[in-house]
Design a protein around this nucleic acid. Structure first.
Lengths: 237, 237
DNA sequence: CGGTAGCTAGTTGTTCAACAATCCGACAAG
DNA sequence: CTTGTCGGATTGTTGAACAACTAGCTACCG
């Protein structure tokens, strides 16, 4: 018990416990849901598309029951809508949805920034570097003119912002919101014009955060999101 | 088209469209999920209980597949946990979960209060009256010594607080958080001592809101939640 | 010509039965 | 006390079957 080898074994079990969740997640329905989610996020499945159980099941090589379980998961994430006795469709966002998505984002992101003032310095530095990494990734992708990747990196910037709150639940909520937002982005064809100008604004906000100007950063982000929302709503009409 | 009967028909279709969502929600899996959710929230299913597919399916009179769909829904709401090849269990909250739940609540509720300053007066009055109604319900239930109902009314108070943000998504997030919180409450046997003292504090916050003192109300709620969190964490040990 | 009722074909909702994969406890061996 | 092995029980997944429903077509009637 007090021997060195016992101590090693305790360390092993801790490490294994951390990985267990990753190894266990091999359910067929979840993998199907992962694939569908990726297809929707990438825009390979356009909003409004109907996913028939028979053809989708045959295409993916899974049974109807398994596929229905996967559908349920994505319906709960709001990526699909389920109409009783009619089928499931890739969600089509309405203008109201965009408004509410941005309202929720604004609330979460600005609160997370304000909560950052209570974070211990070492943790804060770690989270700020995650924000910087996302911006750098966006800059690199813009240089190579991969506008879809720019969008992905921008999303990761905003997720890193909410991660300042240090809450797993808030992180998951934000992840779901960003996936939902992709549905809106696919409505705008000009991805470049939509994503490119925000990289610089993101850099500015990161600078304010690095200087500890949390209030100013929150205000800047609030204004920023209002602009983005308006631009996206315009593209809807 | 312009005849009175055509107008009547238009009115009918509007009315029917409003009810359709209620009538359509007759999926067996969802009704099963509703029943299970209620049992968990009421404490009839204690945290840690395993729900075997066979016995639960026989008890509810539904097939295994339908039951599994219902399980998926509740797993996604974090009321159940699913362990691969082992089964589903009523969630057992850890201290970390309670901490994170309160962190998220604090973020959402205080932000919603701060957002209330931008709400038009007539809408604001409506939402404030919903808050008052919840407090009154709690007072009545306390008078009759129905402590479970006091807890329910208190939850509704907090949901009414977040409703100040005016966002359907925030409302849904909060509803899920409160359901999850019930799991924690069932760990404390002394429901009365836990819920009763907060009624008066709620009333005080409502008064601040009615006076337009949003900043003070947010600060009071923040402190309040910190106290409640500590009390709940103590009950966990 | 316009609209309505009924019919048909195809899809979804739900159940059932079967088999494979996995977990769990018990028991035996070192 | 740990390690292997085995058998029963539970879950994961599939396929088929039937009921319930939707949508589009047709024929009929005014």
């Amino acid at each position: 018990m007090a021997s060195p080898s016992a101590r090693d074994q305790a360390d092993w079990s801790d490490l294994l416990a951390g990985d267990r969740t990753l190894l266990d997640r091999t359910s067929t329905a979840e993998r199907v849901a992962d694939a569908l989610r990726q297809w929707i996020i990438d825009g390979r499945l356009r909003p409004g598309t109907q996913l028939s159980e028979h053809s989708a099941g045959k295409a993916l090589g899974v049974s109807r029951n398994t596929l229905r379980e996967a559908f349920r998961l994505l319906v709960h994430e709001r990526l699909l809508v389920h109409e009783f006795h009619r089928g499931v469709f890739v969600r089509v966002l309405a203008a109201d949805d965009v408004t509410d998505l941005y309202r929720t984002r604004r609330l979460l992101e600005t609160s997370a920034i304000r909560a950052a003032s209570d974070v211990p310095p070492d943790l804060l530095a770690e989270r700020l570097s995650a924000i910087d990494a996302a911006i750098t990734a966006a800059e690199d992708a813009a240089f190579e003119e991969h506008w879809l990747d720019v969008g992905t990196a921008n999303m990761r910037f905003h997720q890193a912002i909410t991660a300042l709150a240090g809450s797993p639940r808030v992180d998951e909520i934000m992840q779901q919101l960003t996936a939902e937002l992709r549905l809106a982005f696919h409505a705008t064809s000009a991805l470049r014009r939509f994503h490119e100008p925000y990289i610089e604004l993101n850099r500015g906000i990161a600078r304010l955060l690095a200087d500890g100007e949390f209030g100013a950063a929150a205000r800047a982000l609030d204004e920023y999101l209002t602009t983005a929302q308006r631009q996206l709503l315009d593209a809807f009409a």
